[in-house]
Amino acid sequence: MSTTFEIIPVEKKNITFRQVIDLSEQRINSFFDSLKIKSNIKLEINLHEISERYVKEVDLDSEFFWTDNEYVWFTINGIPGGTDAYCERIKDDFDESNPWGIFEEMILNNKTIKDFELKIDKSKKLNIYWRLRRSAGQRASINVAYGIISASIAELTGGFIWTEDGAWNFSKFPAEPHEFYKWYFKPDSEDDGDLKEWAISCLGGIAYELK
């Protein structure tokens, strides 16, 4: 089983890989510091063709964009595993009757984002989103990091995060990054018992992984 976070930009889409890496490292290390875990997390990335016909290094100063037959693989230096990221168009050109259907459930589930439909109108003009996937069996550090990377992308683009496949408590999405940081992997802020228990278990394993 895998879970995903989708990041919908609102204000801009022209960010660089370096910006994503730098802010994500800052936010991940800050999170671990809050747990009294000494860390100096460094993220590494490369670009894969979807069928693994090639793997390329990434120019960190290039635009945070790649084609739909590629994915970007994020890893934490020294930690096995990682998270794969995809870059896609929002508009479904194959569904003429409802090309923006991706937004319908987001609107229905929204509880915290003000002027949400106006922000969606801005997102439609950008017509791009990113999706970060975490496969089952990843290390605890990766479980935490892929969400924080997602929130960092949202922060850089003035956007929001969405999930509907169990990546986190569905009732809290869509979420802007300042809200996401308040409760993501914060067991005391979680009322879903199973999710709270899983978060506690993951947090307990991070110090061991980062030794």
Rank of each mutant, 00 (worst) to 15 (best):
S24W: 06
Q19G: 05
H48T: 05
Y71G: 05
T83K: 02
W183M: 07
D95T: 00
G101C: 10
N77T: 07
E155F: 05
L203K: 08
G166H: 11
H48E: 14
Q19K: 04
A85K: 01
D22E: 13
G166S: 13
F65P: 00
F185V: 00
D95I: 01
E25T: 05
E63Q: 15
S34K: 08
R133F: 10
Q138M: 12
L203P: 07
D188F: 11
I107P: 06
N77W: 05
V20D: 00
E44H: 03
P80L: 02
G101I: 05
V58A: 06
E105D: 14
K186D: 09
V144I: 06
E176G: 03
D121I: 09
T112P: 07
D92Q: 12
E25Q: 13
G158V: 00
E11Q: 11
C87P: 05
K114D: 00
E70V: 08
Y184W: 12
G147R: 08
A85V: 02
N169W: 10
K42S: 12
G158S: 03
K124N: 10
G78S: 01
Y208T: 06
E52P: 00
I148M: 04
F180E: 10
I120A: 07
Y208S: 06
Q138G: 13
E197I: 00
K124V: 00
E44V: 05
N77K: 13
K56Y: 11
F65C: 08
W162P: 07
P99H: 06
C202K: 15
I120R: 04
R134Q: 13
V20M: 01
S34E: 03
K172Q: 02
V10P: 01
F180N: 08
Y54P: 01
R89C: 07
C202I: 12
N40G: 10
H178W: 02
N14L: 03
T163M: 03
P174A: 02
A145N: 14
N98V: 08
K36E: 13
N69K: 03
G101F: 04
I28W: 09
S62D: 15
S2P: 12
D92R: 11
W183Y: 14
K91M: 04
L108G: 08
F94I: 03
A145H: 08
G205W: 08
S62E: 15
D188H: 12
H48V: 01
R139N: 11
T75L: 00
Q19M: 07
R18M: 01
S150R: 02
G137Q: 07
R134M: 09
S171Q: 15
I142M: 04
L132D: 09
L43G: 13
I50W: 14
N77H: 05
Y129H: 15
F185I: 05
F5N: 10
L118A: 11
A145P: 14
D59L: 01
H178G: 08
P177S: 04
W100A: 02
E197D: 15
G166A: 10
D165N: 15
K13H: 07
Y54M: 01
F32P: 09
S171Y: 14
N40A: 11
L210Y: 07
A151E: 10
Y146K: 03
D33A: 13
L156C: 06
K211N: 03
I206K: 06
R18P: 05
L108D: 15
A151N: 06
E88P: 01
S51N: 13
K124L: 06
A85F: 13
N46F: 13
E57Q: 14
